[in-house]
C-alpha cells in the first residue's frame, strides 16, 4: 500500500496541531477563567459564558469535520482504485 501514494497518507494522530487546537477550543468553552458565581452580563437571553460555551461547541464540530476531511487518508486511494470498476462515484447508498 505504501507504494501507491505515500505522499497522501495522513493520520490525524500524527498531527499534533490538531490535538492542540482541539484542546484549546474545548478549554475556551469551559468557564474556568471567570469568577465562580458570575451571572451577568446576559446576551440574547443567555449568560455570556454560556454563549461562549455554545460557540466553542460549534467550533469543535467544525474543527473535527475539517480534521476528518483533510487529515485522514490511509487506505482510501487503494480501496477506491480497487472499487472503481464496480462503482465510479463512490456515492452514498441506502443499501448495506
Amino acid at each position: 500500500m505504501s507504494e501507491s501514494a505515500p505522499s497522501r497518507r495522513r493520520e490525524p494522530i500524527r498531527n499534533p496541531w490538531i490535538w492542540i487546537g482541539l484542546v484549546v477550543i474545548v478549554l475556551v468553552g469551559i468557564p474556568w477563567y471567570l469568577p465562580p458565581g458570575t451571572l451577568y452580563p446576559l446576551l440574547f437571553g443567555l449568560p455570556v459564558w454560556t454563549l461562549v460555551a455554545v460557540a466553542s461547541s460549534v467550533g469543535v464540530c467544525g474543527f473535527l469535520h475539517w480534521a476528518l476531511s483533510k487529515h485522514w487518508n490511509l487506505v482510501e486511494d487503494v480501496e477506491e482504485a480497487a472499487a472503481s470498476g464496480a462503482s465510479k462515484d463512490g456515492s452514498e447508498s441506502w443499501t448495506t
Binding site: L22, V26, A53, S56, V60, C61, L64
Partner: peptide, 9 residues
C-alpha cells in the same frame, strides 16, 4: 451544556 461537547469530542 457540557453534554453537547462531550458527545462531539
Amino acid at each position: 451544556w457540557q453534554s453537547v461537547t462531550f458527545f462531539t469530542v
